[in-house]
């Protein structure tokens, strides 16, 4: 009997502790600069690192960062390995069936094609895009030949070495590549997705609401726009 009571007490204690200081685990890819990347010190860095830390401060939560491969990032969220995805993930109806998104923290951003020359056939050529992204879906819809790689970096490398005629990715990701390299933007920018938001498990509405409120407050006082200017430059759409 004594044993039983002790066991229950220990249980109550551990549950109480879990509620008292909840550490929120933020999952990101770490390979999508400038949204998120691993800097040379080996830490997660980028717009979303700064944004996530600020959101946690405003929501009065303790947060830690976890990196996970892009293609298993949603399964690992729903099976509870971390509590939120903050990885440049566009809000799409398909994903909304499985996870719950906050309001977008960046406005619907443009996706662009980048290539080595501007005379590229965007509808009949070979276009590289990251597996499992809205861009990959879009390439299939245009009828172009889709060439898939697991990371955005490999998609860009494919254009450089001639495997693909052009790459389709978020414009913000391509801007630094185009500015510093031999590639140029081609064709029209295409608006895809409904902006980028944080994703939570559907069974976790309270935490989602906390972050939603924090994002709203950052939009209201202009810190969100300042972050976008800092990481994406003046040309990126703002609130």
């Amino acid at each position: 009997m004594k044993k039983l009571i002790l066991g229950t007490a220990a249980l109550a204690l551990s549950v109480g502790m879990a509620l008292a200081q909840d550490v929120v685990r933020l999952g990101t890819e770490g390979a999508y600069p400038p949204y998120n990347f691993i800097n040379d010190a080996g830490e997660v860095d980028g717009l979303e690192r700064e944004l996530g830390d600020e959101l946690c401060k405003r929501a009065e939560l303790t947060c830690t960062w976890v990196t996970n491969d892009w293609d298993s990032i949603i399964p690992n969220l729903v099976s509870g390995n971390y509590d939120s995805i903050i990885a440049g993930m566009s809000i799409t109806p398909e994903r909304e069936e499985v996870v719950a998104f906050t309001q977008p923290y960046t406005p619907p951003s443009m996706s662009s094609y980048a290539a080595l020359s501007d005379d590229v056939d965007l509808e009949g050529g070979v276009i590289s895009a990251q597996t499992g992204t809205i861009q990959a879906n879009h390439v299939v819809d245009t009828g172009a030949t889709l060439l898939e790689y697991p990371t955005s970096d490999e998609c860009i490398a494919a254009v450089r070495n001639g495997e693909a005629d052009a790459v389709l990715a978020d414009k913000d990701v391509l801007v630094p590549v185009v500015n510093e390299g031999d590639m140029v933007f081609v064709g029209e920018d295409t608006p895809l997705g409904n902006g980028i938001g944080m994703a939570f498990r559907k069974s976790d509405p309270e935490m989602k609401d906390k972050f939603d409120a924090a994002i709203q407050s950052m939009k209201d006082d202009g810190t969100m726009n300042a972050l976008i200017i800092k990481w994406m430059g003046e040309d990126s759409p703002r609130w």
Partner: peptide, 14 residues
């Protein structure tokens, strides 16, 4: 890489 989403069994499973 897979071209035009033509891949092997594991590619489609993935």
């Amino acid at each position: 890489p897979a071209w035009q989403q033509k891949g092997d069994a594991l590619y489609y499973a993935n």
